[in-house]
């Protein structure tokens, strides 16, 4: 039993970081009032660019390159939605489609239709002291990014709720005009959050190709970006809530995969597909119960026009 739990925990910790980073990225951008449907595309960007960069660079550096690429894509979203006042949903979907087709094209043009050649994965660490502790030893054998995924939600929460900058971010997502009359740049603040969100979502993508696997695969991130959005909504647009939801979804996935291999009998009763639908169905349920837009920032998706307050 204990071994099963440990395996489950280890598997969750492998699966969760990508979801956590992406959900945090979406949360940051949406708290500032900018819709983040482009997270899926950002993850794909991060995953692809990090994998390709890792072919010629040390993997940790490649991860940073992937993050930077995703941030650049997020910058396009900021440009379109903040400066050119494109519809944020449309801009986000357009970027998803571009990322989908661009990296499929580049992948097949440069490598093979299925994926890049293998790269050196990020190294895995462990604390020798934990080895003897039941359950907790599952924390060992993960990359540094897993540890970061456990710490970053608290850091982002601190940033949003305890710092002056965070206060401004929360305010700009609720009432941008109020922020503008205090002489703070609405577009600047929002652009910073969108690009910051891009870095985080790009990191989430890079996890997939440098830690979870050792290459970029054609279908990455296969809808994880949308599940990150679900985690954000489920977590009511707060970093810790999104973290909790992401880990919950990851644990559900680990359980499902674990059951498939160790207790296939269970899956005859509750089919795989039904289990896979659960995170999304749960999110819908939460929204339906809360009604309205749940806890979404009041100014989410509304372009701010300084001349028509």
């Amino acid at each position: 039993m204990l071994e099963l739990l440990e395996a489950l925990l280890a598997s969750t910790l492998d699966y969760a970081p990508a979801l956590v980073f992406a959900a945090l990225g979406a949360t940051l951008s949406e708290r500032a009032g900018v819709v983040s449907l482009h997270v899926e595309g950002l993850m794909r960007t991060g995953a692809f660019v990090a994998a390709v960069a890792a072919l010629s660079l040390p993997t940790p550096l490649a991860v940073c390159v992937g993050m930077a690429a995703a941030a650049a894509v997020a910058g396009v979203h900021a440009l379109l939605s903040l400066r050119l006042r494109a519809d944020q949903v449309i801009s986000g979907m357009a970027l998803n489609l571009v990322a989908l087709s661009l990296f499929s094209f580049l992948l097949e043009a440069r490598f093979s239709p299925t994926g890049t050649p293998p790269i050196a994965q990020l190294s895995r660490h462990g604390l020798p002291a934990l080895e003897g502790v039941p359950l907790l030893r599952a924390l060992n054998g993960h990359t540094a990014l897993t540890w970061l995924a456990l710490a970053l939600p608290f850091a982002l929460s601190f940033l949003l709720y305890r710092t002056a900058w965070g206060l401004r971010v929360r305010a700009v997502g609720e009432a941008p005009a109020a922020v503008a009359t205090l002489g703070v740049s609405v577009a600047g603040l929002r652009a910073a959050c969108v690009v910051g969100g891009g870095l985080l979502a790009g990191l989430g993508g890079a996890v997939l190709s440098t830690s979870t696997l050792d290459r970029f695969e054609q279908h990455m991130p296969a809808g994880l970006g949308f599940m990150a959005l679900a985690a954000m909504v489920f977590g009511r647009w707060s970093p810790l809530g999104a973290f909790g939801a992401a880990v919950f979804f990851a644990a559900g996935n680990a359980l499902r995969v674990g059951l498939a291999s160790s207790a296939p009998g269970v899956l005859a009763v509750v089919p795989q597909g039904v289990l896979m639908a659960l995170p999304y169905a749960l999110t819908l349920g939460v929204l339906a119960v809360q009604g309205g837009r749940g806890q979404a920032p009041a100014a989410l998706g509304q372009p701010y026009d300084p001349e028509h307050r």
């Binding site: 305890r162 710092t163 002056a164 900058w165 009432a175 005009a177 307050r309």
Partner: peptide, 29 residues
Amino acid sequence: HQHFMLVPTLTVAENVVLGAEPTARGLLL
């Protein structure tokens, strides 16, 4: 302003200091 420039989800104190926040140790609100 005639139409109030306030953030409904923040507290009175947070609304008052927004944009001119007192900070402790640099960043901390």
